[in-house]
Structures are given as structure tokens and as C-alpha cells.
Design a protein around this nucleic acid. Structure first.
Lengths: 187, 187
DNA sequence: CACACCTACTCACTTTGTTGAATAGGACAG
DNA sequence: CTGTCCTATTCAACAAAGTGAGTAGGTGTG
């Protein structure tokens, strides 16, 4: 239940509704796990059935009611257990990597995609910058890392950040190589 | 059929058996997609049924017979199509990131995992270095990128390489932060 | 000469992930 | 005052991915 663990970890920083979770697990925002709303609604039902989280109905005026979830102590214990088990190896699934692997078939098509990816990575980097400012408030990073109560979210943010930075560098390099090969035309 | 595309891309560089594919999609080796043997055997069956690859039986003495697969022209066409469609966003699923997100619950447990990850990344970096030497033979990188017929595999290798490099840097940083927080003991 | 590992693959089952649609009131822009 | 977006969720069906166990002969190690 990997998604389950990710949800529990997200709830560590405070209660959230399925909708809230859906927003923060969105591909354009998430810094540590990606999932669709449907997956998350299903997952919170499961976690609630397993008593790892508990939901309460919040009635709202002017907008739909919502169910807000909190970690139970069983949920916390489950997370602690999880922290103690060996991790399974990272899985990255990236269409763009597959395309670059097959790039020699039709370099121009991939070029287009590389540019799109570049734009996405840059947007994500900005998202991360905003999240960073929000977490740090006005504090200095060093200070924050030494004194904050919760540093997990900041550390995962750093990983996401460097991932996107490297994406940009790599895509830029790929584009340059393609350009250079095109320039010396019929090679 | 993302895995399917990955298999087709792998077969671009030459025929392979299910077993060969299984070896190169192994977590410790793969530079652009990870999959288990079972997934791959299933996938080649599907791709063969769809006539995107074709298999032929190679009888061997002293070891089990094998089925070796080649891209068909339909398979190639399919790949070219795929190159022309927009990519879905990258999905990274990394237990370690979830653990770091929840790190504040039990920092010492995660520390252990961070170290294990470090070792894995270093091993992978060495794998990549070996693959790099094999691809380059004695050529200079610049030369290779300008003159080689196939550069896709090298470019994906570069991405895997930088991913592991950044992993190491990030894990090292996380460990340093944890150390610093432990040092100034009761905060 | 026993044991473990390597090649090569198959079957069965479970868990995740994907897609599409339905519902429904309020906010906001032109 | 119309249309689109936002909140907030549910249901159903399906496709893809992941897990675990099993088979079987050959090779190499101590």
C-alpha cells in the first residue's frame, strides 16, 4: 500500500479532505508522490476502513460538505513501522525517457516533446519556489533546518527541486546535441 | 501501454529474448525503465499478439531454448506514432521520499534507510559508468554524440547518471542535517 | 557430490492506476 | 444572464503493474 503510506505521510502535517489531498498529489504540484483524485478517494476509504485515519463530516454553507481526515494513533504506529522496513527501489516512469531512447527513429518529433518538458519543469520549479517561501517564511534555510519541528516536507521539496533542475539541464543538453547534429547536416 | 513502448524502444537496438529484456530492465541496471521478468514475459506476448514484434524460437544445446524478439515494421511505425504524441507527466514512486516526508516521526529509522539508498545509488553509478565505457568504446563523448548512429541510449544514460548523482548529493545532505540536529541535542 | 546459482520461462492472483461519467450549488467574468 | 470554473465527491469498469510460487536442466564451487 504505497499510496496509503504516502497519504498517511501527507496527513502527518495536518488533517485534509480527499479534495485537499487530490490537490497536493497533482502532477504539477506534488513533490513526493503523484496520484489522481479517484485514487485518493478510494485510498482514504480504505485507510478509514483499516482505522488508520478517521474522517469527520464538515458541513459547509455555500459549498459542498466535505470529509476531513486525521491520522489515528494506529495510523501513526503504522507509519513508524513503515519507516523501519527496507525501501523498495525507486521506480521512475517517464515517457520522455522512452522517447529519447527511441529518438534516433524521428529526432524532430522528440525535439518538440523535449521543449514541452522544459516548460513543465520550469513551471514546477516555480511551484517549488513558492512552497519553499511558504515553508521558510522569512527564516534562513540553515536556521530552519536546525530548529523547525518538521523538516521532512522541506527535505522532500529539496529533492523535487534538484530533480527538476537536472531535468532542465538534461533537456537543454539533448536539444543542443540534436541541434549540433542537424547543423552538420547530412553527417 | 507504457511498458510496451519501453520494450519496443529497447528492441530498437537489436533483438532480445524475454530473459535478455529482464536483465536490462532490472532495477540495478535499467537506465530508462524498470520492470520485473514476469511483466516483460507478459508484455512480449501482448506485443507479439499485436504483431508489433515477432518472435522466433532459438534452439540451444545445454541450456533452455529461448524465444528471441525483433521489431516488426508495424512495431516501428507504432513507436514513431508514440514519438509524436504528447508525453504524460513523469511519475516517480519512491518509498524513501515518503519516508523522508514522515521523517520527523522517527529520524533514526530513516537514517538507516538513507544510508542503504546511498549505497544503492553508488552501485548504480558504477553500472552506468561501465555502460558508458561500453557505448563510447574509446571515443570522446563530443565525437560520439556528433557521429554515432544511435544516440538515444547514451542520452538516457546521461539522465540516469545525473539522477543518481543528485540522489547521492541529496541523501548526503539529509544525513548531514540529521546529524546536526542530533548534535545540538535536546534542541 | 551436494548446493547454490544461472538460463529461460509459465501460471495464478492481487493491487494499482486509468478513464469517463454523474451530481450540484456557488463564484466570477464578460 | 450565460457559460465556465471551482469545490467536493461518488460510481463503475477496465487496463496495467506488481507479487509469489513453481519448473527444469546445466554449470561452477568448495
Amino acid at each position: 500500500m504505497s499510496l496509503g503510506h504516502a497519504v498517511l505521510a501527507a496527513l502527518l502535517s495536518g488533517e485534509a479532505s480527499g479534495y485537499d489531498l487530490a490537490k497536493s498529489f497533482q502532477a504539477s504540484v506534488a513533490n513526493f508522490w503523484v496520484a489522481t483524485p479517484q485514487q485518493l478517494y478510494r485510498e482514504v476509504d480504505r485507510l478509514e476502513a483499516a482505522a488508520l485515519i478517521s474522517g469527520r463530516l464538515v458541513e459547509q454553507r455555500g459549498r459542498p460538505n466535505k470529509r476531513v481526515f486525521t491520522l489515528t494513533s494506529a495510523g501513526r504506529a503504522h507509519l513508524v513501522d513503515f519507516l523501519g522496513t527496507p525501501s523498495r527501489p525507486t521506480s521512475i516512469k517517464d515517457d520522455l525517457l522512452v522517447k529519447v531512447q527511441a529518438l534516433d527513429l524521428a529526432p524532430e518529433s522528440v525535439e518538440h516533446d523535449l521543449r514541452a518538458h522544459l516548460a513543465r519543469s520550469e513551471a514546477k520549479l516555480e511551484q517549488y519556489a513558492a512552497l519553499r517561501r511558504w515553508l521558510l517564511r522569512d527564516q534562513d534555510e540553515q536556521d530552519y533546518l536546525l530548529t523547525a519541528e518538521e523538516i521532512g516536507p522541506y527535505l522532500t521539496l529539496l529533492r523535487g527541486w534538484s530533480f527538476e533542475r537536472e531535468n532542465i539541464a538534461w533537456v537543454t543538453r539533448c536539444l543542443a546535441v540534436l541541434q549540433a547534429r542537424a547543423d552538420q547536416l547530412p553527417g
